[in-house]
């Protein structure tokens, strides 16, 4: 039985099966990745873990406590970082954190210490007296995370914590995740950015249309995609006819029309590269760059669903 144990969980909104028979376990002390495109059902799943939404059927336990039967015990163990920046814009960072501390039931005597600690983690101590509305997107995200750490949760569940963020804040957040994890905190990291999940997580679940379509160690998953690589060709004048011709080349698994040019999925990029370039240049396309991407979670997703993780 996992630290977080999810078995056969369903949740629908009307006709939409947002979470469709999901089972998975998160082990104590790991950074677990939940990867999936927008609308996959990630937020719905973690809302149920965090007891703010009831499942239609199935069972979820956190540290042995059933989310439906003992939500209080579950809540005290979980810090949920919502996908939205759930902070009060006209209050300062310090005021926001103090408010959330009170919401978590921290005693007055501990409040200041905890708020200071959270500000430290966010790296925004010197700006604590500024209103949230004056912060950049990245700084808001950092406070959004800090607000979920005030009560020393055993588990931190992060719902797309790096959306709309500058590289510096992104790095800060990823470092924070690893740092918290190294101090023993279990982390569930939800994202549609495969690079982040690949960087942070040992075990990963890939979700699509409410279902877990792949679950396992990072390296295991990559093997699932076979040894396929993606050849990204930056080129002008791409049309469906050209895509079709490339698709029909022997050894090519798939070809996709991307905004920058063509993405070609192949088993053996070294052998195929010259043929693909040749074919592309047959028409009036001009190639400006070629890039070979070795198997990653993106190609796993592509392999499993036939579509790109991000549109």
């Amino acid at each position: 039985m996992g630290f977080i144990d999810i078995s056969n969980v369903h949740r629908s909104f009307g006709k939409i099966k947002a979470v469709d028979n999901v089972s998975l376990q998160v082990e104590k002390g790991e950074v677990f990745g939940l990867l999936g495109p927008n609308g996959a059902g990630k937020s719905t799943l973690i809302s149920m873990i965090a007891t703010i939404l009831d499942q239609d059927s199935g069972k979820i336990t956190v540290s042995g406590y059933d989310t439906k039967a003992a939500p209080k015990q579950v809540k005290t163990r979980i810090g949920l970082v919502p996908q939205e920046i759930a902070l009060y814009p006209s209050l300062t960072a310090g005021e926001n954190l103090a408010f959330w501390g009170k919401m978590y039931g921290l005693p007055k005597s501990k409040l200041k210490e905890k708020v200071d600690m959270a500000l430290d983690i966010a790296g925004l101590k010197e700006r604590q007296k500024d209103r949230i509305e004056t912060y950049s997107g990245g700084m808001k995200r950092r406070i959004n995370i800090a607000a979920s750490l005030l009560h020393n949760p055993e588990i931190l569940i992060m719902d797309e914590p790096t959306v709309g963020i500058d590289p510096q804040s992104r790095k800060h957040i990823l470092d924070t995740v690893l740092d918290l994890n190294s101090r023993g905190m279990t982390i569930v990291y939800t994202s549609h950015y495969m690079e982040e999940v690949e960087y942070l997580c040992q075990r990963i679940a890939i979700m699509d249309n409410g279902k877990i379509i792949a679950l396992g160690e990072k390296e295991e998953l990559k093997l699932m995609a076979g040894s396929s690589s993606a050849v990204a060709i930056e080129a002008s004048n791409i049309d469906e006819e050209l895509i079709g011709r490339i698709k029909s080349l022997e050894g090519v698994e798939d070809a996709l029309n991307e905004s920058y040019g063509i993405k070609v999925v192949v088993k053996d990029p070294d052998a195929m590269l010259s043929r693909i370039i040749e074919e592309t240049e047959k028409g009036d396309s001009t190639i400006s760059s070629v890039n070979v991407e070795k198997p990653n979670l993106e190609s796993v997703f592509l392999h499993l669903t036939g579509k790109a993780l991000r549109d």
Binding site: L80, P82, A86, M103, G105
Partner: peptide
């Protein structure tokens, strides 16, 4: 803004 939800998530 989901702050209400966050209050519920807290306690």
């Amino acid at each position: 803004m989901k702050t209400l939800e966050r209050i519920i998530a807290a306690r």
